[in-house]
Design a protein around this nucleic acid. Sequence first.
DNA 1: CTGAACCATGACAATTATGTGACAACGGTG
DNA 2: CACCGTTGTCACATAATTGTCATGGTTCAG
Lengths: 231, 231
Amino acid sequence: MTTRILIIEDEKPIREMIRFALEREGYAVDEAGDAAEATSRISRQRPDLMLVDWMLPEVSGVNLIRSLRRNEINRDIPVIMLTARGEESDKVTGLEAGADDYMSKPVAIKELLARIRALLRRSRGFSQEETLQAGIIKLNIATHQITINEQAVHFGQTEYRLLKFFLQHPERVYSRGQLLDLVWGETVYVEERTVDVHILRLRKLLKPYGVESMVQTVRGAGYRFSQAVES
Amino acid sequence: MTTRILIIEDEKPIREMIRFALEREGYAVDEAGDAAEATSRISRQRPDLMLVDWMLPEVSGVNLIRSLRRNEINRDIPVIMLTARGEESDKVTGLEAGADDYMSKPVAIKELLARIRALLRRSRGFSQEETLQAGIIKLNIATHQITINEQAVHFGQTEYRLLKFFLQHPERVYSRGQLLDLVWGETVYVEERTVDVHILRLRKLLKPYGVESMVQTVRGAGYRFSQAVES
DNA sequence: CTGAACCATGACAATTATGTGACAACGGTG
DNA sequence: CACCGTTGTCACATAATTGTCATGGTTCAG
């Protein structure tokens, strides 16, 4: 799951600079130069966080935020406001308008990154304590641990995510393409046959416990995770 | 060791008045007029207790406390909430947010002093007997002392806080980013890889006692402290 | 029965994540 | 000021994971 950040800032150099820094951290970054572009990008790309410049042509950043906040669906996107001068009054207006945090330019990249992390963590809230289960297989999201028959089993990242996905969506058949989108992410380009290999690896991990048949092949269609044994 | 008290209150006269009274009692007093100033003072001056006004400009006192409490490092600072009217609903919200006590304004100085003493006593007494433990590792919060197998071991500040955090939140996996937020503090700007180094140092400290494997790496996810040994 | 499509599997090399030692900056202290 | 312990950062070493491919087995329509 990659995190999308939208930069709304009219000065291109600053945008580029921030973009560079953010991408190096592994965020997916989109840019918008004015409020109009911003609104369309927001509705299309659903960013997880926004950096908004205070001074924008036409519609100011504050007004942009204010109008965004009116819309229920955008209400929980965290916003960091950027301003040229650290004026106290600006700060107040910005926070009142619905910004979650505030930084004055020029931005210190490290500080920006820290604030982004903090905001993201807060907005995501405390992650689910949930523990997924199917038969003797248990997957605890908080501890990132998989237990089969009460025995801890070590899974690689991909196999972990794959099993997690299957536990969350059992019985249903997914094509290789769908699995790539849903488990790997839409943005990565990977061969479809790679899915086969990871299915194989998943089965190998389950084999010692005799539950490898829960991962089923549906010829011509894809794979399915099922608690019931094939007939 | 002098006791530091931070007053967070936007009305200067009240602040001054309280400050005067507290200083006469021998406390070191700091003031903050708004939430932003408060946060920075807290991280720098590490007060032993805080008086927080309910009504603050921008970010309300409740929200300030709430966000403070999210941060491990600030979780044990006692807070007395001050409010204009003694409304019951306010009280509930305040206490839910993480305040330890509650007073309505205008404050009676004697009562305030008494409550401060009580809270300080409680928080100290509490931490005095509070000793975290996992296997042969014991951490005494009051004395800041760590004992492994009955042997005192010297830890640096960071390693101490890291171990303390792990002892308080075992089993669960934390990413480098989360650890930075929760152990270092949200406002500190440090490279994520630095966490690795401190994990290493923590392990080195535990190694002579054969318990370094309690600090586990979860590849691609972060670190976990666990009493059980990995398989 | 047969070939084409489809899938399982082992091997391998590239890529990534983590471990680790060294070092410089810092603040405190004698 | 020199010394010490602590901390954050870096560069390199090491280890784990991952994607791809080649090969061989299986299934199924015709």
